[in-house]
Every structure is written in structure tokens, then in C-alpha cells.
């Protein structure tokens, strides 16, 4: 499944990095601890978090993640969005909580 299909299915806002919308997604990871994501996320996953600072993009890029989904109406900091543009890794947004959006994502892309 592509990032763009997830955007459509879950009605997500695209804040930045739209050139990465056609990337393939292999699964998801949910965490607000950067070392947890560094240690345990896999390439091509979407990362669900409420962290909005620039280091989120450093981690997403180093781990080759497909996209970041900010929950509960959070918006990326300006320099976070700028780096997302540069890396071509989309930052997406939802008003749903991490629990709600993760449940929907799990239904959509399964337990990969």
C-alpha cells in the first residue's frame, strides 16, 4: 500500500514532503520515544507520534521510514516541515488520537 492510499483512506492532512506520497508502506510503528523508534522501527513503516520537532525527521530519514503521522491535531514545527520537504518524507496529520489512528492503520495495512 502506498502512503497516498493511507492519506485517502484515513482522511489525513498532508503538511509537507508530498513528493514521498507514492512510497510503499510495509507497516507501522507507534512511539514518542526517539530511541525506541531508532532501535525498533523498520524501513518503509509509517511512524505515529505526537512529537513535532525537527529530530523526528532525522530519525525518519536515518531509518528510511515512509511517512510520519502526527496525532491529536499536532502540527510540525516549521523546521521539521522544511526538512520533510528536503527529504521527501511526508508529514501527515490527523485529529484522531494515537490509539484511534493506529487501530485504523492496523485494519488497513495489517499486522506486517
Amino acid at each position: 500500500m502506498k502512503v497516498s492510499e493511507i492519506v485517502k483512506a484515513l482522511d489525513l492532512k498532508v503538511f509537507s514532503g508530498s513528493r514521498g506520497l507514492e512510497a510503499e508502506v510495509s507497516g507501522g510503528y507507534v512511539s514518542d520515544l526517539l530511541s525506541d523508534v531508532m532501535g525498533n522501527a523498520e524501513a518503509s513503516q509509517v511512524w505515529v507520534t505526537l512529537q513535532t520537532h525537527k529530530n523526528v525527521m532525522a530519525v525518519a530519514s536515518l531509518k528510511d521510514l515512509a511517512a510520519v503521522i502526527l496525532v491529536s491535531g499536532h502540527r510540525p514545527d516549521e523546521n521539521t516541515a522544511a526538512q520533510s520537504e528536503e527529504e521527501g518524507i511526508p508529514i501527515l496529520g490527523t485529529g484522531l488520537s494515537a490509539f484511534q489512528v493506529s487501530g485504523k492503520l492496523y485494519e488497513l495495512i495489517g499486522k506486517k
Binding site: 514518542d32 520515544l33 526517539l34 530511541s35 512529537q51 529530530n55
Partner: peptide, 11 residues
């Protein structure tokens, strides 16, 4: 910021 969870050195 999501750092300092005590996972760095074990990673």
C-alpha cells in the same frame, strides 16, 4: 522531546 529514555546505550 522523546530522548533520554535510557535506551541509547543499549541500542
Amino acid at each position: 522531546m522523546g530522548f533520554g529514555a535510557g535506551m541509547g546505550l543499549s541500542n
